[in-house]
Design a protein around this nucleic acid. Structure first.
Length: 121
DNA sequence: CTGCTGACGGTAT
DNA sequence: AATACCGCCAGCA
């Protein structure tokens, strides 16, 4: 079909693309905004598979974990780059490497319509 | 359909 | 504070 229903990953990319520079959101937040409050892990999976070409349009570095930290999960190189990119846009990290979510968290788009994607089960 | 795999998150230790 | 568990879930073999 010419207009296939966008999958979950696509919605993740579309939302992340709207995060303002200098602000951050958690994986769980992204999931909740998309209408799947328990799919935080799937959001992480989506970003892990972010197509190279899209990395220029999608500010993946602005998505962090619920503790305000960067999820390394083995990929230390990426983690370092992520922190560097965030500091580059003004985000400050505590001595323990945490972002101040109280101050830098983005609450999500205004007048947001929860999307729907091909559901399973 | 079954059974993995994670850039998660909450709880318990 | 740091680990360890465990439930969740979209994708994919």
């Amino acid at each position: 079909m010419a207009h296939p229903t966008p999958g979950f990953f696509t919605h993740v990319y579309r939302l992340v693309a709207r995060i303002p520079k200098g602000r951050v959101v958690t994986y769980g937040q992204v999931a909740a905004i998309l209408g799947a409050p328990r799919a935080a892990r799937a959001v992480g999976t989506a970003l892990r598979h972010l197509p190279r070409p899209l990395s220029k349009k999608v500010p993946w570095q602005r998505v962090i974990n619920a503790s305000g930290g960067i999820s390394a999960r083995g990929d230390v190189l990426r983690a370092e780059e992520q922190r560097w990119l965030l500091e580059e846009e003004g985000i400050k990290f505590s001595r323990s490497g945490k972002v101040d979510l109280e101050k830098d968290r983005w609450s999500g788009p205004k007048n947001w319509k929860v999307p729907k994607w091909k559901t399973k089960l």
